[in-house]
Amino acid sequence: MEGVSRLFSGMRIAATGMSAERVRIDTVARNIANSKVTRTAEGGPYKRQVVEFEPILQRQADGREINAGVRVRAISNDEFSSFERIHDPGHPDADAGGWVTYPNVNATREMADLITAVRAYEANIELQENFVRMADRALRLAQ
Protein backbone atom coordinates (compact mmCIF):
# COMPACT_ATOMS: atom_id res chain seq x y z
CA MET A 1 0.00 0.00 0.00
CA GLU A 2 3.07 2.26 0.20
CA GLY A 3 2.52 3.47 -3.36
CA VAL A 4 -1.13 4.29 -2.78
CA SER A 5 -0.47 6.21 0.42
CA ARG A 6 2.21 8.15 -1.45
CA LEU A 7 -0.41 9.07 -4.04
CA PHE A 8 -2.52 10.70 -1.35
CA SER A 9 0.30 12.30 0.66
CA GLY A 10 -0.10 15.53 -1.33
CA MET A 11 -3.73 15.76 -0.28
CA ARG A 12 -2.69 15.29 3.33
CA ILE A 13 -0.13 18.10 3.02
CA ALA A 14 -2.83 20.45 1.71
CA ALA A 15 -5.03 19.39 4.64
CA THR A 16 -2.30 20.29 7.17
CA GLY A 17 -2.15 23.73 5.55
CA MET A 18 -5.91 24.13 5.86
CA SER A 19 -6.00 23.19 9.54
CA ALA A 20 -3.06 25.50 10.35
CA GLU A 21 -4.74 28.40 8.54
CA ARG A 22 -7.96 27.70 10.39
CA VAL A 23 -6.13 28.10 13.72
CA ARG A 24 -4.95 31.49 12.42
CA ILE A 25 -8.52 32.47 11.46
CA ASP A 26 -9.77 31.40 14.93
CA THR A 27 -7.00 33.44 16.56
CA VAL A 28 -7.98 36.56 14.58
CA ALA A 29 -11.59 36.04 15.68
CA ARG A 30 -10.47 35.73 19.32
CA ASN A 31 -8.36 38.89 19.04
CA ILE A 32 -11.24 40.91 17.59
CA ALA A 33 -13.74 39.53 20.12
CA ASN A 34 -11.42 40.54 22.97
CA SER A 35 -10.31 43.88 21.54
CA LYS A 36 -12.06 45.86 24.30
CA VAL A 37 -11.32 43.55 27.25
CA THR A 38 -9.55 45.63 29.90
CA ARG A 39 -9.50 43.02 32.67
CA THR A 40 -8.29 39.41 32.41
CA ALA A 41 -7.62 36.60 34.91
CA GLU A 42 -3.84 37.16 34.50
CA GLY A 43 -4.34 40.84 35.26
CA GLY A 44 -4.22 43.77 32.86
CA PRO A 45 -5.88 44.01 29.46
CA TYR A 46 -6.15 41.17 26.93
CA LYS A 47 -2.97 40.59 24.93
CA ARG A 48 -3.16 40.03 21.19
CA GLN A 49 -2.30 36.46 20.24
CA VAL A 50 -0.17 35.38 17.31
CA VAL A 51 0.17 31.96 15.67
CA GLU A 52 3.60 30.53 14.92
CA PHE A 53 3.93 27.93 12.17
CA GLU A 54 6.58 25.27 11.70
CA PRO A 55 7.12 22.70 8.93
CA ILE A 56 6.39 19.00 9.48
CA LEU A 57 9.47 17.04 8.47
CA GLN A 58 9.25 13.38 7.62
CA ARG A 59 12.26 11.11 7.44
CA GLN A 60 12.30 8.88 4.38
CA ALA A 61 13.58 5.32 4.19
CA ASP A 62 16.78 6.64 2.54
CA GLY A 63 17.44 9.03 5.45
CA ARG A 64 16.39 12.20 3.62
CA GLU A 65 13.94 14.51 5.33
CA ILE A 66 11.07 15.75 3.24
CA ASN A 67 8.53 18.42 4.00
CA ALA A 68 5.17 16.86 4.82
CA GLY A 69 3.17 20.00 5.51
CA VAL A 70 2.82 22.54 8.27
CA ARG A 71 1.61 22.69 11.85
CA VAL A 72 1.06 25.29 14.55
CA ARG A 73 4.08 25.37 16.86
CA ALA A 74 2.58 27.78 19.37
CA ILE A 75 0.00 30.45 19.93
CA SER A 76 1.83 33.14 21.88
CA ASN A 77 1.11 36.59 23.24
CA ASP A 78 2.17 39.59 21.21
CA GLU A 79 4.60 41.31 23.61
CA PHE A 80 5.80 43.90 21.10
CA SER A 81 2.75 45.90 19.96
CA SER A 82 1.86 48.77 22.23
CA PHE A 83 -1.38 49.03 24.18
CA GLU A 84 -3.91 51.76 23.58
CA ARG A 85 -4.37 54.25 26.42
CA ILE A 86 -7.62 56.23 26.64
CA HIS A 87 -8.46 58.86 29.21
CA ASP A 88 -11.75 57.78 30.81
CA PRO A 89 -11.80 58.47 34.59
CA GLY A 90 -15.27 56.94 34.98
CA HIS A 91 -14.11 53.50 33.78
CA PRO A 92 -13.82 50.86 36.57
CA ASP A 93 -10.37 49.81 35.26
CA ALA A 94 -8.99 53.35 35.05
CA ASP A 95 -5.67 53.92 36.85
CA ALA A 96 -5.02 56.69 39.38
CA GLY A 97 -4.61 59.25 36.59
CA GLY A 98 -7.89 58.22 34.91
CA TRP A 99 -6.25 56.32 32.06
CA VAL A 100 -7.61 52.99 30.81
CA THR A 101 -5.29 50.53 29.02
CA TYR A 102 -6.97 48.72 26.14
CA PRO A 103 -5.66 45.57 24.38
CA ASN A 104 -2.89 45.83 21.76
CA VAL A 105 -5.34 44.65 19.09
CA ASN A 106 -5.54 46.72 15.92
CA ALA A 107 -8.69 45.96 13.90
CA THR A 108 -7.08 46.86 10.55
CA ARG A 109 -4.12 44.56 11.12
CA GLU A 110 -6.44 41.75 12.23
CA MET A 111 -8.55 42.14 9.08
CA ALA A 112 -5.42 42.07 6.90
CA ASP A 113 -4.33 38.91 8.73
CA LEU A 114 -7.76 37.37 8.25
CA ILE A 115 -7.72 38.00 4.49
CA THR A 116 -4.23 36.47 4.20
CA ALA A 117 -5.30 33.39 6.17
CA VAL A 118 -8.51 32.90 4.15
CA ARG A 119 -6.62 33.22 0.86
CA ALA A 120 -4.05 30.68 2.00
CA TYR A 121 -6.86 28.35 3.13
CA GLU A 122 -8.48 28.60 -0.31
CA ALA A 123 -5.16 27.97 -2.05
CA ASN A 124 -4.84 24.71 -0.10
CA ILE A 125 -8.37 23.72 -1.15
CA GLU A 126 -7.54 24.37 -4.80
CA LEU A 127 -4.45 22.15 -4.61
CA GLN A 128 -6.49 19.41 -2.99
CA GLU A 129 -8.97 19.62 -5.86
CA ASN A 130 -6.03 19.33 -8.27
CA PHE A 131 -5.06 16.03 -6.64
CA VAL A 132 -8.62 14.73 -6.86
CA ARG A 133 -8.77 15.52 -10.57
CA MET A 134 -5.36 13.93 -11.19
CA ALA A 135 -6.39 10.76 -9.37
CA ASP A 136 -9.64 10.76 -11.31
CA ARG A 137 -7.72 11.02 -14.59
CA ALA A 138 -5.51 8.10 -13.60
CA LEU A 139 -8.60 6.02 -12.75
CA ARG A 140 -10.11 6.66 -16.17
CA LEU A 141 -7.02 5.07 -17.76
CA ALA A 142 -8.24 1.77 -16.39
CA GLN A 143 -11.66 2.02 -18.03
Binding site: G10, A14, G17, F53, P55, V70, N124, L127, M134
Partner: peptide, 18 residues
Protein backbone atom coordinates in the same frame (compact mmCIF):
# COMPACT_ATOMS: atom_id res chain seq x y z
CA UNK B 1 4.08 15.07 -11.76
CA UNK B 2 2.35 13.51 -8.75
CA UNK B 3 5.49 14.04 -6.69
CA UNK B 4 5.70 17.64 -7.94
CA UNK B 5 2.11 18.18 -6.83
CA UNK B 6 3.20 17.10 -3.35
CA UNK B 7 6.11 19.58 -3.38
CA UNK B 8 3.80 22.43 -4.48
CA UNK B 9 1.32 21.49 -1.73
CA UNK B 10 4.16 21.64 0.83
CA UNK B 11 5.12 25.12 -0.46
CA UNK B 12 1.56 26.41 -0.15
CA UNK B 13 1.07 24.81 3.28
CA UNK B 14 4.24 26.60 4.46
CA UNK B 15 3.21 29.95 3.01
CA UNK B 16 3.57 31.58 6.46
CA UNK B 17 6.34 29.48 8.00
CA UNK B 18 9.26 31.77 8.92
Amino acid sequence: ANERGRVIAANVANESTP
